[in-house]
Nucleic acid binder design. Sequence first.
DNA 1: CCCTGATTCGC
DNA 2: GCGAATCAGG
Length: 207
Amino acid sequence: MSWTDERVELLKKMWSEGQSASQIAKELGGVTRNAVIGKVHRLGLSNRTGAEEAEAPAPEPVAKPVPVAEAPAAPREAPAAAPRAENVTPLRPREAQPAPAAPRAEAPVAPVPMRKAIVPAGQPLPPQPSLNEISPETLASAREAEKRSRKISLMELTERTCKWPIGDPATDNFYFCGLPAQPGKPYCEAHVQVAFQPMSARRDRRR
DNA sequence: CCCTGATTCGC
DNA sequence: GCGAATCAGG
């Protein structure tokens, strides 16, 4: 591939639009980001001053209009579980919560009444299965994983980090597991187990 | 780790 | 002129 006029044009255009060298390289094809950067310098447009740059804080051109997670489906069967007398520690409240007296009286509401955009776009909402739907073994490894979790933020999620949400998104005690995700899967080994269960086994355990 | 842009330097 | 390798930084 060589720098034909068209290619240089596209390069100039994209560069002035604030696209990154790698994005431009991808678009052009046949070149690496290094090639793009090198060309940019030779063309003398290092100073990203291609377009007028009105002053609009150029919203970091995110390649695609990442569709902010649609309002996630209502927490499945959450309310139903609430009434259960026994303290149904919803799996979420981490760290042993030594029965701190006077647990919010208005707790029966669905756990995790999230606002929006809590789960990265594209990924299915992690089910918050009621405890009896999870086998003891799976539950154990899930809790163990929670301890080792990297506690990363939404922005730190990547292709290979577990995207299992932990904590209440309404509080600052919210983060994502972040452990190494199973190749191709959105979660780490432990959370994959919780998220993807054979229908049969799941049905059998449900009450 | 992943990704940025900047530089260098042999070709 | 080109761009891989490498550097510096987030």
